[in-house]
């Protein structure tokens, strides 16, 4: 009975996907790998450089600075968007006509193209003509995101929160609505307060969707490019130059293809490693 029937035909069915992935991911990635270990001056002439670019990137102060900014930005927006999203989801109605109204309003920011979000907030926050910028200045606070790093960070974070909190809300809401009424009734009978209900019923039931939400927000915010590029262009100075903006500057601004390729690979591995670690830890906890 331990003789297994194997059917190699299955490979045929996976083949189209393998070809597709090869063309849109593996081959481009290999090109990047190719660039990362060589030096080129154009004309398709390459010189072997080994791990030189990797060493350079890992020891570069500039890379450390962008990575630091990137980590700080991602931590801030996760710390705001996840609790805020959960809080909003908790206050949303469970049934009635308002459910769809709320859901549509919530989904709206997600439907706006990223560069439009950047342009919108750019105008919105301009100190002379923007509603937000003028209002803040009218309150007596000196605010100009084009010249003050703090103001630039504030605006970028606010924009991201506006754009993406909805995603957390929708996922958390989906998790919440899947909780049967009996749980709330049992909690009521057991004399549980609102905090105990949240801690022992709602949070555990939302755990899976929140894991997904945090993963998505981590990856997306870690690779954020369009919105800050349109809003601040990475400035003032290098204040909001996040990893991807820095990468584009090196690759397309300075045409340092080798270092840029090495940096992309390091960048890619960081995202991969953090996501994998986080997911594995959450699932390990789940399995217990």
């Amino acid at each position: 009975m331990d003789k297994k029937t194997t059917n190699q035909k299955a490979w045929l069915f996976v083949l189209p996907v393998i070809i597709l992935v090869a063309f849109n991911a593996i081959i481009p990635l290999m090109t990047v790998v190719n660039y990362s270990v060589q030096e080129t001056f154009g004309d398709n002439v390459f010189f072997w450089e080994g791990v030189k670019w990797f060493e350079a990137v890992l020891n570069s102060d500039r890379f450390h600075a962008s990575l630091g900014r990137q980590l700080l930005f991602t931590s801030i927006i996760l710390a705001i968007e996840v609790p805020l999203g959960v809080a909003i989801a908790l206050t949303m109605p469970k049934k009635g006509v308002w459910v769809s109204v709320c859901l549509v309003f919530m989904a709206m920011p997600l439907l706006i193209p990223w560069n439009v979000v950047g342009a919108m907030w750019n105008i919105f926050a301009l100190p002379d003509i923007g509603l937000l910028g003028r209002s803040i200045n009218a309150l007596g606070i000196d605010y100009n995101f084009t010249s003050q790093p703090i103001a630039a960070w504030f605006t970028t974070v606010l924009m991201d929160v506006w754009h993406w909190t909805s995603l957390v809300v929708l996922l958390a809401y989906a998790g919440l609505t899947s909780i049967p009424d009996a749980y709330y009734q049992a909690a009521k009978i057991d004399g549980a307060g609102p905090w105990a209900v949240f801690r022992y019923i709602q949070l555990p039931k939302m755990k899976r969707v929140l894991t997904i939400a945090i993963l998505l927000r981590f990856m997306d915010s870690f690779m954020i490019y369009t919105e800050p590029f349109v809003l601040t262009g990475g400035g003032p100075g290098n204040a909001t130059t996040f990893l991807s903006i820095d990468l584009v500057k090196i690759a397309l601004g300075q045409f340092d293809l080798g270092p840029a390729a090495a940096m992309s690979l390091v960048y890619f591995l960081i995202v991969l490693l953090v996501s994998w670690l986080f997911y594995t830890l959450m699932m390990k906890d789940e399995a217990q």
């Binding site: 049967p180 009996a182 749980y183 049992a186 009978i189 057991d190 105990a196 022992y200 019923i201 555990p204």
Partner: peptide
């Protein structure tokens, strides 16, 4: 309900998943 001193067992089992059996029983 919490002021009536009643207990109820529902059609589908309701347990607090993240807690141990002990903590579940101790919860009320």
């Amino acid at each position: 309900p919490d002021h009536r001193n009643i207990a109820q067992v529902f059609q589908f089992p309701v347990v607090y998943d993240t807690m141990s059996v002990y903590d579940n029983l101790a919860f009320p």
